[in-house]
Structures are given as structure tokens and as C-alpha cells.
Design a protein around this nucleic acid. Structure first.
Lengths: 245, 245
DNA sequence: AAGTGGTCTAGACCACATC
DNA sequence: ATGTGGTCTAGACCACTTC
């Protein structure tokens, strides 16, 4: 049992449940509450913060969804004893690399409006042949090429310049344009590099590549991006956390 | 706007919010509520079901977490216009294949108690050299080998027989033993097949393989399984749905 | 101005795990 | 028997979007 210090600011615009969740998360990450250790029960926690139980419950649920805590009826709430804790969230490769201090660099290979191929039209929910933006980029980390990225966006959604794309990740540009990504369907696989891919990625033909295709949807349920990417398997892998609900 | 038929049974042991979620999900999957279409607002829905608003909210949140719905303040709740809808959940390959009608078959290559190698000890949170169960299995779908699976479990947690493993998935056996999996950290990558792997999987040496390592935790936060697997990339890929919270 | 979801309260009863 | 989380109510006020 552990009682981390908790305080809430009722004048802050930050929701109360979120303030509590942040403080609990900080206590866990700093090791003030050890893996395997039990938290106070919800009622005590609520009393101690001066909040109602549903509000405290919402804070705890937030951390359960994040994979930091597990709850069991009749038992209590415990910290998961996991070592790694990186999850693939709804960010683009650029965001990931920037967050990890990887100095991402982008070379724009193509920036066009094309007629949507069948597969793309199907994924984006537009008629085949409708105009869509097509991007092809080569992503570096430091001096090393890392991935070859091909994206399609519904026509008129976003008209980025090559300069925009060199400086920012695609998802960053989408967010800046007021598009809030909510859901993505991804498929991850592997195959051998074609000659062209190998040359672009500074690898030899036939080396294994990781492939990822993704269709992303915004907060209105519209498909806003379809991507088909290949990564050098020697330098990249996907990490994710699954949480059973 | 759409008003699917909804009814709740207050004598059922199934929670009310879950009954509502199930009926909404069925209406969506049957196409009775089309992608992009808006649902009634929460208050109307609550009135119509004879439930309180928080209960209906919980039902909707459940479907938002599943990636079926998106919500936006001031706008409403809409059905996502996604075509694919398979997510990697916390199931094992055996479960996945069985659910897809893939007739899984398992050949047990090794079933031992060994001293935990450093990497395994670290992932399972046991001292290096502690006794752990080691399993090596070859998983087929129909006549074709699909994956080579290596797992480690903390000593004493589960003592399966080769017959158990031939008939059931590992996760199924864990559940039957009262172990409830809650969280898993996975890493997905790719590399070339070694000669031994190629032979076991009926491929040629050097073909690309998908790799997946996973550490799974139960509802008490304990690490209960570490797995290191390789899949034939020509016959398998991972599909998952990401939801921004 | 009207309508939507987001947050919050102060309780209540229940199911499950443990002792 | 006790303590835990799971579910549920009937409201309230607020922030955001759209018209």
C-alpha cells in the first residue's frame, strides 16, 4: 500500500481526473510507487483528494488504459511490473524520431496530384480516379536512410509544399490544419527489398524490409490518409503495448 | 441521424451499459447505421433506453475505445467509415487462427524446465538462472508451417503436457488455469531466416521473416509469459487498430 | 442561441476475492 | 465478515461547434 502525495487545483483548466492521473503516473515513473505495489482504494483516494469517487475512478481508468495499472475486483489496484513502456501511439514516424532525439530529415521524392488507384480509392472512401494528393518521401535519421514513405490524401484536404514536408511530419501538418486523427488501421508485414528500394535505402537487393500500411481516420470518421511504407529492418522495429479491456 | 431499436433487460446479469454497447455494435456491423452517419445524442439515447446518461455514455465510450465510433464535442457521435476492422487483441496465434477457421495444428519441439537466460530473467522479473518452463512449438495452418514459437514461463506457473499444447493455444491453457492476461508489450521486426529456421518453416535460407517478441502480464501485474517468435512473412502479417484517447 | 459531448457530484447497491 | 472494484442514478454546470 502506498500513498503518494496528491493535490488538485480546482481553478486549473486541466480536468481534475487528469490532474490526478498525471500525479499518479509521475509517482509510478519515478519509482515512488514500485511495480507490484498496491495503491490505496478508490474511496480513500477520493477522500484524500477531496474529489468524488467517480472522478478518481476516471483517473485510475486512464492509467489502466495506458497499461500502467491493473485492477481486480476484491483485490485492488496494482502497478504493473513491466520494464519497457513504449507504445505505438497515433503518431507518425517523424514525431517518433523527433521525440527520441533521432534528428529526422526528410527528402521529398514526389509531390503530386494523381487519379486515385483502386486500392487507394477503396481505403480513402473516394471514387476510383478521383484526385488525391500523392507524396513519396525518404526519411533519414542522422545520415542513414531509414524508410521510404508513400502517402495518399483525399484531394483538397491538405496542400503541403515540399518545404513544409521537409521541416515537419505529415501528422504534424494535419494537426496544424485542424485535422484531429482518432483511429488508424495498420498492417505490418515483411518482404524482400526490390532493387529500387534497396538503392534508395542504401541496402542490398533482397534484404528483409518491414512493411506497414495504414489508413487513418479523423474525429469525424473520415479517412484522411493512406500510407504504404517500407522500413529497413536492420534499423527499425515496432513496439506496442496491448491492453485487454 | 439514426435511431436503432434498443432494449435492455434489467434482470440480466449482463451490465446495462454492455447490453446497449452490444446492440449498437450489432446495428453498426449490420449496416443499420451507416459509416459517417450520426447517432442520437446521449440524452435522447438515455431517455429511450430508460437509463441514466452516464450509463449510456459508458456504452458509447466502449465502442469509441473499440474504434467503431468517434465523438466530437459540439458535433456528435458518428460511425467511423472504416472498411477493415480487425484488431490485434490479447490473443495468441492459435486463438487467431481458430477464430479465422484456419485449422491450427501444433508440433511440440521442446518442453523443458531450464535455468532462465539473462534476457528471459529480465523480462519475467525472476533472478537469472531461476527455473523457468521453456516451450518450442511449430505452428501449422492446414499443411503449411506458419511460425516457430519459443516461450518461457515462470517456474511453477503452468505445467502443460505435450498433449495439452498440441490441442490448445498457450493463452487458452493460461486462462483455464485462472490466469487473466491484461497487458502485453510487443516488438515486431523482420530479419532473414537462418538455415535452421528455413528448414523448419519449409522456406529457403535468407527469406524474410517477421519476428515478434512479447512479454505478457496478468491482472495482478505479474509477468507470466515471454515469447520470441518468427513467422513466414509470405503467409502472415499483423493487423491492428490504434485509437487515440 | 441552440445543441453537443466533457466533466463532476454524492450518494447507492452489487459481485467478487480474501481471510 | 470485510474490503475491493463494478455498476448505476439523477441530476448539475461547462466548453466547444454550428447556425
Amino acid at each position: 500500500m502506498n500513498r503518494p502525495a496528491l493535490s488538485v487545483d480546482r481553478n486549473s483548466p486541466v480536468p481534475l481526473y487528469f490532474q490526478v492521473a498525471q500525479q499518479l503516473e509521475a509517482a509510478i515513473r519515478d519509482g515512488k510507487v514500485a511495480p507490484g505495489e498496491r495503491l490505496e482504494n478508490e474511496v480513500q483516494l477520493a477522500d484524500r483528494c477531496g474529489l468524488s469517487r467517480p472522478t478518481v475512478r476516471q483517473a485510475i481508468q486512464h492509467l489502466v488504459d495506458k497499461g500502467l495499472l491493473v485492477r481486480k475486483r476484491g483485490v485492488g489496484t496494482q502497478v504493473v511490473q513491466a520494464q519497457v513502456r513504449r507504445s505505438v501511439e497515433l503518431t507518425s514516424l517523424y514525431d517518433d524520431l523527433a521525440a527520441a532525439g533521432g534528428e529526422p530529415r526528410t527528402e521529398v521524392l514526389e509531390l503530386d496530384t494523381v487519379e486515385a488507384p483502386d486500392q487507394v480509392a477503396k481505403e480513402l472512401g473516394v471514387p476510383p480516379g478521383a484526385p488525391v494528393a500523392k507524396l513519396r518521401r525518404l526519411r533519414y535519421t542522422g545520415a542513414e536512410p531509414l524508410a521510404l514513405l508513400t502517402n495518399y490524401l483525399p484531394g483538397g484536404l491538405l496542400e503541403p509544399t515540399a518545404a513544409d514536408l521537409a521541416e515537419h511530419g505529415l501528422y504534424e501538418l494535419l494537426r496544424a490544419a485542424g485535422i484531429n486523427l482518432r483511429i488508424a488501421n495498420q498492417t505490418i508485414g515483411a518482404r524482400s527489398a526490390t532493387a529500387a528500394e534497396a538503392q534508395a535505402l542504401d541496402e542490398r537487393r533482397g534484404v528483409p524490409l518491414l512493411t506497414m500500411t495504414r489508413t487513418a481516420y479523423d474525429d469525424k470518421g473520415r479517412a484522411v490518409e493512406y500510407g504504404s511504407h517500407v522500413y529497413r529492418a536492420s534499423r527499425y522495429s515496432f513496439a506496442l503495448t496491448l491492453v485487454e479491456r
